[in-house]
Write a protein that binds this DNA or RNA. Structure first.
Lengths: 109, 109
DNA sequence: GAAGTGCGTATCCGTATGGTTACGTACCTG
DNA sequence: CAGGTACGTAACCATACGGATACGCACTTC
């Protein structure tokens, strides 16, 4: 769990995930998408693999990476216990907004 | 966004959030819940505050911390674009997710 | 087999992190 | 005003991280 959040705590790595969300890609393709040198990308991919967020499949000399959503599902499960906190607040906000809306509607007409 | 995920990437800090989910607490109460010394807790709380995950209110010499769910809502929104990936194959992933969940309960909390 | 391609690992460097102990500060209490 | 209480900050240490460059290894191709 630590490793998943830590992996997500870097914007370069989130960019990689965003690409892999659409389609698997080789390390080279992924490297071109980031503003850093190849070895850096390689290590970011290593971190993602350690966190279970990514799968690698070797095809000749190419490494093809693909997204592994299971850890994200874990994050979703973790969030579950907190979701009520902002849903309640959003609810309160929502009712407040509609109240003010009806109030302004009342004052407008 | 980086700061939120990085803040969540430490089990001590997640423990603090878990306590604050139930009720606000003073720094001292929170410190007793962690296996580390007071100044360490103080800095963890600082990290959580920087990430916007926590609010502080001073009351005499006590600092009362409370949970601020907004950044977690942001995480929820970020997850949204990935959710389809495991919802589509929910049955295939369900067993794995629950397995890892019990595993992480056993080890990390 | 020699050369080229694709990618990882090794090493180095500056900075950040997580823990500690020692100290400082603000506040209540006697 | 002296002293205790509840914190945070400073200084220090070991380790980890993110970046770079240089190198190594596996595979294809000629």
């Amino acid at each position: 769990m630590d490793s998943v959040f830590q992996a997500l705590g870097d914007s370069n790595r989130r960019t990689l995930l965003e690409i892999l969300r659409d389609h698997p890609a080789t390390a080279g393709e992924l490297a071109e998408a980031l503003p850093i040198a190849r070895p850096g990308v390689s290590r970011h991919l290593h971190v993602l693999r350690e966190a279970g967020l990514v799968d690698v499949r070797q095809e000749a000399q190419r490494r093809i990476y693909s997204l592994r959503p299971a850890p994200l599902a874990e994050v979703d499960v973790w969030l579950e216990d907190y979701r009520a906190l902002w849903l309640n607040r959003l609810d309160a906000l929502h009712t407040e907004v509609t109240r003010q809306k009806t109030q302004s509607r009342r004052s407008c007409s």
